[in-house]
Amino acid sequence: MSRIALITGASSGIGKATAMALSKSGIDLILCGRREDRLRELSETLAPYTRTTILTFDVSDRKAVTHAIDSLPAEWQAIDILVNNAGNAHGFDSIEVGDPADWDAMLDSNVKGLLYVTKAVTPGMVLRGKGHIVNISSIAGKETYANGTVYCASKAAVEALSEGMRLDLTKHGIKVTNIAPGAVETEFSLIRFKGDEARAGKVYEGFVPLRAEDIADCIAYAVLAPAHVTISDMTILASAQAAATTVYRK
């Protein structure tokens, strides 16, 4: 019987690439996101490889998360792999002029949303005595940088949550993997800079950034590792990136 993976933020970027990578190993997929049209398009693309189903909800809405996951048909309820990918950066301002609405958006999705989805999925894993949780953190969770204080704090929380989950859940046969990407060219910067394409594009100028597929390959490596192996933490940087804000550009 195929394993089942639930992926949040599957409509684009790392989530979409992860769905495509896992589908090639025959893992059945629960594709979650807010943009139903994109999820359906992805589902059709993956149809030759594996079974899929779609859940549309915002991870920051606790009731919506619980309702959506509880609504899964019986054949989809035994979730083996959870990929907590949904989340974003909003704004790039010094703390004294930052917008509290941006802070709320980051903490609600990056931290609370991750918790809500994990809370909905892990009881079943504990009951079955097996499972794998993959949390998408960031290099920003390991290195704080100027003008990204709250985003960095939200991803540092993911780092702590991954470690804590591993301490709490290993005894139940559940693996926990923390993935910390560096500069990945997705919609990330476009969202952070409120749709300013020119400013977002400059983030990736002068070097070759990571692609979503690079991170998806690392996630697939972790979840396909032998039963006795846990990839606990993985940091992936572009070859021109030495640290969070140290990038050597041509």
Score class of each variant (00 low, 15 high):
Ile236Phe: 03
Val229Gln: 15
Glu36Leu: 03
Lys16Gln: 14
Val203Asp: 13
Asn110Thr: 12
Ala216Ile: 09
Thr18Ala: 10
Lys250Pro: 07
Asp37Pro: 00
Ala227Glu: 15
Asn135Gln: 11
Asp61Gln: 07
Leu29Gly: 07
Glu44Met: 11
Met20Ser: 14
Lys155Ser: 04
Val150Phe: 02
Lys171Met: 03
His90Leu: 01
Ile14Trp: 02
Ala64His: 03
Tyr49Phe: 14
Met165Ile: 04
Thr144Phe: 00
Asp168Val: 07
Leu31Thr: 05
Ala157Tyr: 05
Asn110Glu: 12
Val117Cys: 04
Leu82Asn: 09
Thr66His: 14
Ala198Arg: 10
Leu190Thr: 15
Glu96Met: 13
Lys112Tyr: 13
Tyr116Met: 04
Leu167Gly: 03
Tyr49Asn: 11
Ala89Pro: 02
Tyr49His: 14
Ala101Gln: 15
Glu36Trp: 02
Met1Asn: 10
Pro100Ala: 05
Ala17Thr: 09
Leu115His: 07
Asp70Cys: 03
Asn147Leu: 10
Ala120Thr: 00
Gly26Met: 10
Pro48His: 11
Pro209Trp: 02
Pro48Thr: 03
Arg166Lys: 10
Ser25His: 15
Asn178His: 08
Thr52Gln: 07
Ile27Glu: 06
Gln77Cys: 10
Thr235Ile: 13
Gly33Ser: 14
Ile54Asp: 09
Ile139Leu: 06
Met1Cys: 06
Ala68Glu: 09
Ala156Tyr: 05
Lys16Ala: 11
Val83Pro: 11
Phe188Asp: 07
Leu237Pro: 01
Asp80Ser: 08
Glu44Arg: 14
Leu114Lys: 01
Ala105Ile: 02
Val59Trp: 04
Gly113Asp: 09
Phe193Asn: 11
Gln77Phe: 04
Asp196Tyr: 13
Glu187His: 13
Asp108Thr: 12
Ser154Cys: 01
Leu167Ile: 12
Ile139Met: 07
Leu82Ala: 08
Lys250Tyr: 05
Ile14Gln: 00
Glu197Cys: 02
Thr8Met: 06
Asp196Lys: 08
Trp103Ile: 00
Gln77Met: 11
Lys119Ser: 08
Leu39Tyr: 12
Pro209Ala: 10
Leu6Lys: 06
Leu161Ala: 13
Thr246Asn: 10
Tyr145Val: 09
Arg34Glu: 05
Phe188Asn: 04
Gly141Phe: 00
Cys218Trp: 01
Ile174Ser: 11
Ser60Val: 03
Thr245Leu: 15
Thr53Glu: 04
Ile174Leu: 12
Ala200Arg: 08
Met125Ile: 09
Gly129Trp: 05
Ala78Arg: 14
Thr235Gln: 13
Pro123Glu: 05
Ser94Gln: 13
Thr66Glu: 15
Lys112Ser: 08
Asn178Asp: 14
His132Phe: 12
Ser12Thr: 15
Ile236Gln: 04
Val184Thr: 12
His90Gly: 00
Leu55Ser: 07
Tyr145Gln: 03
Ala238Gly: 10
Gly182Met: 01
Leu6Met: 11
Gly91Met: 00
Glu36Val: 05
Gly164Gln: 11
Asn147Asp: 11
Tyr151Met: 06
Ile95Arg: 00
Ser162Trp: 10
Ala225Glu: 04
Glu44Ala: 15
Arg199Val: 01
Thr18His: 12
Thr245Cys: 12
Glu213Ser: 14
Thr170Gln: 07
His132Gly: 06
Gly113Thr: 06
Asn178Met: 15
His67Ser: 12
Ala120His: 04
